[in-house]
Nucleic acid binder design. Structure first.
Lengths: 207, 207
DNA sequence: GGGAATATTCCC
DNA sequence: GGGAATATTCCC
């Protein structure tokens, strides 16, 4: 059983090994290297037999590439470089790395750093971040909106604390006022009892 | 070129398609189905030629399985079911689904719901969640602790609101007390002026 | 063993 | 096109 043939991409695995994050500049993502390899190797094939229809090639400017025949491309070429033969998976990867489809009637793709003859630029292409849009993937939408609401409330937290502080201050002032009134009351009552003498029924009616 | 042979796992792709989340119970994760298939099919092989050394098999109790020969297993069997021939990738998947290595000198693995003759249990096995330990992967530790702190503060938010409400209530009560005292003061002063007549200097000294 | 990046699939 | 689940790789 020709296992080597079955798992072609495994061979260059070591060459493409990416050592940690800092060494990133040295070594482009495998997908990009492989796609570039594919185009270079196919370009050679195209040059050999010019009469034949091309399956895939760089565009004339070398600023992108065209898959002229998606069916043959998927069946014959993809499995040589990747672990699948699905055109849509290939497209998905292109999108992940920020390639753009630049023609409506042709499978032509471009990326500013994916140019014929410029393999060194590949290392500067990064996967699109899975958008710092919000929250962990394991949360369902309802949980996310809860969190979102929470965060908004978090902003109100400062306002709450401020209001809280103001309320405490107000309370203190009110309590001082009341203390003052109590003293006043006592004094007034004293005064009343002094002035009026002892007919208590008169004072009683005030309360 | 025998493309079908190259991408064996693609064949049963449609059978294994998992339609949405709710239909989850119907259809186990491909990894589990394939591993189960592998064991069943290999069991048949083992029965055919009993003299040969087994590469992989259910354990005697049927409560798990043993990879007797990792090298042959990886080279010959893995590529028939998966898109690779790496024993370590296979192990990684087992761990992802919660299998345990249950022997020190043998590659024997068990999972409570992975039993010989119980294919229906497979659908109850779930991937380990990427641990709801905390936060999105793209956050660095400092950002995570910030979020953590925020969340703690978020808990205090409720307390703040409660205290706030209490303070408002208290304020209202205090204001009512003050209103009462003011009325009282007015009445006392009226009373005083009635009783004492007009020697105002006496009243003045109270304030 | 498992975290995390990349790859592949599936689905909207 | 891209979100998200699963698979594969790489590394600690």
């Amino acid at each position: 059983m020709a296992t080597d043939a079955i798992l072609a991409p495994a061979d260059d695995r070591n060459i493409n090994r990416r050592i940690g994050r800092p060494a990133r500049t040295k070594c482009p993502p495998p997908f990009l290297s492989k796609t570039y390899d594919l185009l270079e190797e196919q370009e050679e094939e195209n040059n050999k037999c010019k009469e034949q229809n091309k399956v895939v090639s760089w565009n004339v400017e070398g600023s992108g590439f065209v898959v002229w025949c998606p069916a043959e491309f998927s069946e014959l070429m993809l499995p040589k470089y990747f672990k699948h033969n699905n055109f849509s998976s290939f497209i998905r990867q292109l999108n992940t790395y920020g390639f753009k489809k630049v023609a409506s009637k042709r499978w032509e793709f471009q990326h500013i750093k994916f140019q014929k003859g410029c393999r060194h630029l590949l290392a500067e292409i990064a996967r699109k971040k899975c958008e710092p849009s919000a929250f962990p993937a394991y949360l369902n939408p309802s949980e996310k909106s809860t969190l979102l609401a929470r965060n908004e409330e978090n902003t109100t937290r400062e306002l709450l604390m401020e209001e809280n502080q103001n309320l405490r201050k107000e309370r203190l002032e009110l309590q001082m006022q009341i203390a003052h009134f109590k003293t006043l009351e006592v004094k007034l009552l004293q005064c009343l009892s002094q002035c009026v003498g002892s007919p208590q029924n008169k004072t009683r009616r005030l309360f």
